[in-house]
Structures are given as C-alpha cells and as structure tokens.
Write a protein that binds this DNA or RNA. Sequence first.
DNA 1: CAGCTAAGAGGACCACAGTCCGTTTACGCT
DNA 2: AGCGTAAACGGACTGTGGTCCTCTTAGCTG
Lengths: 198, 198
Amino acid sequence: MDDVKTMYELPVIAEERGERQDAARNRERILCAARRLFDERGADCVTMDQVADAAGVGKGTLFRRFGSRASLAAALLSEHERALQEGFIRGEPPLGPGAPARERLVAFGEAMLDMLEAHSELIACADAGAVRYAHPTYGVHRLHVLLLLREADPQCDAEVLADALLAALGAELFVYQRAAQGMSLERLKAGWRELVAG
Amino acid sequence: MDDVKTMYELPVIAEERGERQDAARNRERILCAARRLFDERGADCVTMDQVADAAGVGKGTLFRRFGSRASLAAALLSEHERALQEGFIRGEPPLGPGAPARERLVAFGEAMLDMLEAHSELIACADAGAVRYAHPTYGVHRLHVLLLLREADPQCDAEVLADALLAALGAELFVYQRAAQGMSLERLKAGWRELVAG
DNA sequence: CAGCTAAGAGGACCACAGTCCGTTTACGCT
DNA sequence: AGCGTAAACGGACTGTGGTCCTCTTAGCTG
C-alpha cells in the first residue's frame, strides 16, 4: 500500500516544481487576497500589511514571495501581460506578424491602451517611478517596438524612438490624461496613430 | 529718537513681503543645507531629517515651508526653471518667439535635455511618479508645446501629442537612457529632432 | 517511525516621508 | 516698554514599505 501511495503522490508533489506545499498554498492565498482587496478598494488604498492579514500570512512571507509592492502588482497582471505578448509575438495580424510594421505598431499601442483602460491602477502600481525601466516587461515591449521601428524606417534611431513611444504609453500619463484631462480612450488611440504616423 | 528708529526700521520690515524674519532666515538655511547635501551625496541619499538637522531647524519647520520632498527639490530648481521659461517665452529665437514652430520645438527639447543633463537627479526627485502632472511647471511646458504644435500643424490633436512629446522628456526615462542604456546627450537630442520631425 | 535539514513562516524592527499639537516668538498696537 | 496674538517652531508621533532573525515544519533519509 505504501508503494501505491508513493506512486500516486510523488508525481503530485513533483509537479510542484520544487516549491513546498505550504509555500505554494501561501502564494495562492496572497494572490487571491491581493486581487480581491485591490478590486474592492483601489490599488493605492491597500497596504501590504492588509494584504498579508487578509491572506492570513505574515508580512515576511508576503515580501519573501513577491519582493515588493510593485512585484506583487506585476504578478497580478502577469496573465494579461502574457496574453498581450502572445498577441504581438504569435497572434493574428495586425497585432501579430504578417501586417506592415506601422500597422503593427498602431495595433500594439491600441492593445496597450486597452490594457491600461482595464488595469491602469495596477499597472501604475507595478511601474511606479523608475521601476518601470528595470522590469523585464519593459525590455520585451521595448524590443518589440524597436524591431518594428527598424522595419518601418531603417534610417531612424530606433532605440531612442522606442523609448519615446513607450513613454507615451506610461500608466501615470494615461491616468492623468484619462482622469485629470478627461480625454476619451478613443482620442488617446487616435493620438497614438498620429504619433506613429510620424 | 523713537520716531527716527521707527522710520528707518519699518520699511525694512515691510519689504519682507509679510514673511516673518525667522521664517525667511529658516527658508534660506533650509535651501542652503539642502543644496549642499544634495550636491555632496546625491539627491536620493539624503533624508528630510538630515536636511532639517543640517539646516538647524525642526522637521516640522521644514515641511511647513516646503510641503514635501518633491516641492523642496522643485524649489531648488526654481531658478533654472525660471530661466528656461524666460528663454522660451521672451528669449531669442530659436528657443524664443520668432522662429518657426518646429524649430522652436526642437530648441525647447534640447533645452530640456540640457537641463536634465545638469540636474536629472533633482528633477527626478521633483517629478517623482505622478506628481509631475500635478505640478504647475508641467502645465506651463504643456501649454508651450501645445501652442507650438497647433502652429506647426493645426489639424493635429495638439493636446495628446504635447503629452506624448513631454513624456519623452521625463527625468526617469532620461536617467534610464543615459545611465542604463549609455546613450549620449547628443544622441538623445538627435532622437528628439527625429521625433519632432514627425 | 525518528531525526535531520533546508526552506519557509512570521512578527518585531527599521527607515523615512509626512502630520499634529503644545510651546515659543516676532512684531503690530497702545 | 508691555501686551496680545497670529505665525512659526520643533520634535514626538504615525503610517507604510521593506528587512532581519528566530522559530517552525515539510519532506527526505535511514
């Protein structure tokens, strides 16, 4: 019987990628609690202590798992981010490969703006301040825009322009334009199209 | 004799613009100490407590005068900022009025980049996060770029484009491009020119 | 089943920005 | 000069992100 048990249970344990069960359970608890609290009260009305309490874990555990507030927010966004990357790497044109570079650039910006519309608070939280540029996500977006720019105009300084374009898609700017300036999502998309046209 | 004293001293007091002498003295002390510490150690290695101590005032006084760390940094920059504004409002072309809008836009960006080169740390501190968009300085820059864009191309959505262009001149991005990416100031200026050309 | 050990847990603790409030003081008025 | 008061002072205090260090426990080994 022990052998049977072992045979059935070992794989279950093994598939946990070397993460201990309590660790995996706590990670889930934390993500759950964080998602709920952020949804309920808005991202910047929730403290890390509250997340830890709601998840029923200590603060140390929370920070051991996620490192920082920004990383926690990034973890909550990772599904959406993965979908976006999937879309522009392997998806259908015009976002994915197959369309002309300009059009893909337009589609990329529109997809980013859609994501901002849905999760601006969380994204602002994940990208707060200079952290944005340190995050690998930024590198991926940057590389994508870079290659499209090179394709569209081999003469241009694609690196500098990529940073400039991505700056226009920053979460803090988006919130300012949407909330303080009252600009519509459609208007921002149109603005992006104008920007890419140049 | 009393009358004479009064006659000589009143004007001196009056020219203080209603600010009490101790308040004025402490403002100077704080600005001095802050400038010195920021120069010596770099802006983000200096705490507000240290500034208060070095200035020989209490923390309460420091915050009563300047409201926040960002505002203190802004106060230290106000001379340079005033000079920049003077330059593009009343100065010589191509920065000031007289030159074609595109050229003024190029000159404005280059002036901003020069200022960033000289004070990026302090500017990053003053503009940290979403604060930038709340600051009246942003409004001034935005309006300037807005009017130039309208002049250069009356068809475009100048408001959205102004925000997009200014985003490319953000301090955090500048630091990333200069330090992490190792881009030269000249290269960034050339990038700005390309951006404005479109 | 007992024991070992590294990974994990958790809460006391720290640093720092920003606030509050009781005390002091500049300065106008008489 | 003496007084009254609004302004200014200063430091104790708070809230929060993040760290440290000790105790616990999952899960391997014999």
